[in-house]
Amino acid sequence: MNNRILLIGPGNSIHFIKWLNSTSKLFEEVYVLTQHEIKFSESLPKNVFVKQLPFKTKAGYLLNVIAVIKFLRKQSLSFIHVHYATGYGFLGAFLSNKKYNKILSFWGSDVYKFPKKSFSTKSC
């Protein structure tokens, strides 16, 4: 089994960057897909490779699916770790390939904010 992981999440979040830095110590190569501008890119470890997704609006969580699938076709990965169940998790739900071990991390706003946003999400 190879020692590569793909992280999908908000590159503009210091919490995501902390996950990224910790993960880079456990894997030979860490790939990052984000539709947000990556912060602190100059201080990322050398085994981290960042790809900016083409669509950056809320619709990007759906529109970026094709870009992610194209990326996955070119890579041999051990895991895909998706951060945020609501935005990036929605994007990750379309990655139904059984070839990869998938991890979904819920963040605080997935639990405390999102269910209260609208009538349709209150019933979730």
Rank of each mutant, 00 (worst) to 15 (best):
A59I: 06
V65I: 15
F55C: 00
T121F: 15
Y31H: 04
S96G: 09
A67P: 13
G11H: 04
I8N: 11
Q35F: 01
G11P: 10
L20K: 01
L63S: 07
F114K: 01
V32G: 09
L77I: 03
T23H: 00
L26T: 03
K98H: 14
T34Y: 10
G108R: 08
K102D: 07
H83S: 08
N21Y: 11
E37G: 05
L63V: 08
E28S: 04
S41V: 08
C124N: 08
L26D: 02
K56W: 02
F55Q: 03
L6F: 02
G11N: 07
K98F: 13
K51F: 11
F94H: 10
I80P: 13
F119G: 07
Q75E: 10
E42W: 07
V82F: 08
V111G: 05
F94S: 07
Y88E: 10
G89H: 13
F119Q: 06
G87E: 05
V111D: 05
P115R: 02
L62G: 03
K51C: 00
G87I: 03
Y61E: 14
L44H: 01
L7M: 10
S105R: 00
L20M: 14
I8P: 11
I14W: 12
S96F: 15
G89W: 14
G92V: 15
L91T: 09
F27N: 00
F106Y: 09
K102A: 08
T23D: 00
Y84N: 06
E42S: 14
F94N: 10
N97T: 12
E42D: 15
L63Q: 13
Y84G: 02
Y100P: 07
L63Y: 03
N47G: 10
L53W: 11
T34C: 08
K70Y: 03
P10G: 14
W19C: 11
N21E: 13
K116N: 11
T121G: 00
K58A: 12
E37A: 10
T57P: 01
V50T: 07
S24R: 08
Y84V: 08
L33C: 01
V50K: 06
V65F: 15
W107Q: 05
E29C: 00
K116Q: 10
S76M: 01
K122W: 04
N47R: 11
I80H: 14
E28D: 06
F90I: 12
L6G: 03
P45N: 12
K116H: 04
S109I: 10
L95E: 00
N2C: 07
F16G: 03
V50A: 03
S123D: 03
N47K: 04
S24T: 05
L7Y: 02
Q52H: 12
V111W: 09
E42M: 06
S41K: 15
L91E: 07
S123F: 15
H83C: 03
G11W: 11
V48N: 02
D110G: 02
P10E: 15
F79R: 03
L33T: 00
T121M: 14
S43E: 01
F106V: 02
T86W: 15
G60M: 14
F106Q: 06
L53P: 09
N64T: 08
T121C: 09
V82L: 05
K98T: 06
